[in-house]
Computed example of a mutant assay.
Amino acid sequence: MSEMPRERVEFESGGEQCAAWFYPGRSGLCIVMATGAAVTKEPGTDPYAADFQAAGHAVLAFDYRGFGESAGWPRQVLSVNRQVDDLTAAIDFAAGLPGVEKDKIVAWGSSLGGGHVLRAVQAAPVAAAIAQTPLVDSLVSAPAALKHETLGVVLRFPFLVLLDVLGGVLGRAPRLVPLTGPRGAVAMLTTPDSQDLERALDPDRRHGGWRRTIAARSVLLLALYRPGRHVSRLRCPVLFVVADQDQSVLASPALRAAGRSPRSELVRVPGGHYAPFLEAHDAVLAAELEFLTRQLPGSARENPTLRQRLSGPGTAAS
Rank of each mutant, 00 (worst) to 15 (best):
A120F: 06
A145W: 06
R260E: 11
S311K: 13
T180S: 15
T133F: 03
Y274C: 01
G152S: 15
P270E: 09
V242L: 03
F67P: 02
A145K: 05
A34C: 15
Q247E: 15
A131N: 05
P270N: 01
P143C: 00
Q295G: 00
V39P: 12
H57C: 02
V231K: 05
E302D: 14
I91C: 03
A258I: 08
G167K: 11
A243I: 13
F22C: 09
A257D: 12
A120G: 11
R75M: 04
R256S: 11
A287V: 04
G171F: 02
E42M: 03
A131M: 00
I31P: 15
P24Q: 07
I31L: 14
L135P: 03
V117M: 06
Y225N: 02
G181K: 09
A173N: 10
P262A: 01
E7G: 11
R268S: 02
P304K: 00
V136L: 00
D103S: 09
R307T: 15
R307D: 14
P47M: 05
A185L: 06
V238I: 12
H273E: 04
A89K: 01
G109C: 10
A258E: 06
V106G: 03
H148W: 15
V153C: 02
R212D: 03
D51L: 04
L255N: 05
E149V: 12
P178W: 03
V153R: 13
A19M: 12
Q122V: 02
A187G: 01
L146I: 11
G152W: 10
R156N: 13
E149W: 04
A257F: 12
R206H: 12
P158K: 10
K102S: 15
P158N: 10
S138K: 03
L220R: 05
S27P: 13
D282E: 08
L97K: 14
P203T: 08
R8C: 10
A287Q: 02
G312C: 07
R309C: 01
Q245N: 14
T191E: 04
E290Y: 00
P98R: 00
F62A: 04
S218W: 04
R26Q: 15
S70G: 03
R268V: 13
E12K: 06
P203S: 08
R307Q: 13
T293L: 09
R199D: 10
I91E: 05
L250K: 09
V241F: 00
Q195P: 03
S299T: 15
A38E: 02
G14N: 09
S79F: 07
S2G: 14
L176E: 07
L278C: 10
L151N: 11
L139S: 14
V186G: 00
L189R: 14
F52E: 04
G72W: 12
V84T: 15
G56M: 00
P297F: 01
W108T: 04
L197R: 06
A54S: 14
R307P: 00
V121D: 04
R8W: 04
L97A: 10
G15E: 01
D63C: 09
H116M: 13
I105R: 13
V284G: 08
R65S: 01
T305V: 12
T305L: 14
V59A: 00
L170Y: 07
A54G: 02
E101K: 11
V165G: 00
H207S: 05
W73E: 14
